[in-house]
Design a protein around this nucleic acid. Structure first.
Lengths: 238, 238
DNA sequence: CGTGTACTTGAGAATTGTCAAAGGCTGTGG
DNA sequence: CCACAGCCTTTGACAATTCTCAAGTACACG
């Protein structure tokens, strides 16, 4: 049906259509902006951004998953965010010349859309409603970060692991008979680092959860949530 | 010298002058906005905001200190932020009707300045540069939160305590012969909760740090940093 | 089919949490 | 001005958890 040209066109719009950031714009303006957007692809394992590098663009994930992380002084990798389709990042550097404070690595083949700082500046100045939307999105990001921060403050490790599983189920879960299937975006080591525990401890917790019937390990990269309520109890939700 | 009226005028300007948010505005515009601002005072221990309450204004701390916190399911108080003069909060609710996700309590007598949502909306729509400044400030807040998140992810408790002491030294420290004096804004219990450790553990760490000559406990609410470098080493700074 | 990587499991060491008691500071009332 | 009550903090001892190191297992990939 679609000609290749149409398809590429489609493709371009997708980025911008998916991002709530631009939802207030008219179709006309959207097309204008879409024209400014650059596209890039990365292979799994490639670095999109490295710590200390300059950040010249807002980056929107069009396809695939990435992790944003830093190295701790102990040499451990501390994951800050997992971004997937529709997420954007780099916004904190839009109005500063600060260097990137984290690395971003592709966890799968990734396609991104780029909007340079100066282009976005123009958009923001001429479309105050986009600025307001951006503020609102940043507010959400902050709220999300506050939640993550709080769950890190929980002393009980079981609760932290349960919280992570539920977060993953929400973000990466696919409904299936028996419970949502989570395709884990990161290794056990990554998860352990994210939680600030040893990878062995995570293994043990997952084994225990499986023994207790809370989850089912399908294969190394797939976990099925079998008892969401009990996980929620552990996580400390009321 | 100043008449009472003048003084009050001064007082009004202070809020707005202190906040980088409005730094791009002309004196004229500043005065305009200053006129819109409401003022309130709170006693130590009073709640400025309670979880689940509605948020109708951006709040700027004019004088004093406050803590923003939630209760964990275990009933513990998890402190998310400590705000002092010039800090503002409530920005994440500006463009949503979400309820407050944390409590804010005065840690000392506090004076605040309020700018309602609708007033700020107008300012943002008519002054895109303020919107940009706000975006930039939110970016800083996010970066700060990322740092806090990372330090929570550090497994080593000594490092977390050292990080907290250094943060406090920077934010609340006053230079003095022998090293910066920190007036602690919160109790040991508060600090322990912030770090996600038991208060007894914090006590022991502080005692150990004192034995090692890293800090000196002046009185319960005052700590002197005597060996910043060693604290930095512990905190894992390079 | 072998090799390497990632994961799991085990056991002992180290750290932290919990419970209990003692110490110290603050503010009130005599 | 002192005594006492109440609260927060410190310290001690033990229990529980987690970390570390090490061996063994599963899986993916060439």
């Amino acid at each position: 049906m679609d000609s290749p040209q149409n398809c590429r066109h489609c493709d371009r719009n997708l980025c911008i259509h998916r991002v709530p950031l631009f939802s207030s714009l008219s179709e006309e303006n959207l097309l204008q902006i879409a024209g400014l957007i650059q596209h890039k692809s990365f292979e799994k394992g490639e670095l999109l951004i490295s710590e200390g590098g300059s950040m010249e663009s807002l980056i929107i994930i069009h396809q695939g998953r990435v992790k944003a992380f830093r190295y701790t002084s102990a040499g451990r990798e501390q994951i800050l965010y997992l971004f997937s389709e529709g997420d954007f990042f780099g916004e904190q550097y839009l109005f500063s010349n600060l260097r990137a404070t984290y690395n971003v690595e592709a966890l799968s083949p990734v396609k991104i859309c780029l909007l340079t700082k100066s282009q976005l500046h123009k958009v923001l100045l001429t479309h105050p409603d986009v600025a307001i939307k951006l503020i609102s999105e940043l507010g959400k990001r902050i709220a999300q970060m506050e939640n993550a921060f709080q769950s890190m403050g929980i002393r009980d490790v079981d609760a932290r692991v349960a919280t992570l599983l539920l977060d993953f189920a929400e973000k990466f879960g696919v409904d299936a008979p028996g419970g949502p299937l989570i395709t884990l975006p990161i290794s056990r080591e990554g998860m352990a680092n994210y939680l600030g525990i040893a990878r062995e401890t995570l293994s043990r917790k997952l084994s225990k959860f499986e023994d207790d019937g809370l989850i089912q390990s399908v294969d190394l990269k797939t976990i099925q949530v079998r008892d969401r309520d009990s996980l929620g109890d552990l996580a400390g939700l009321e």
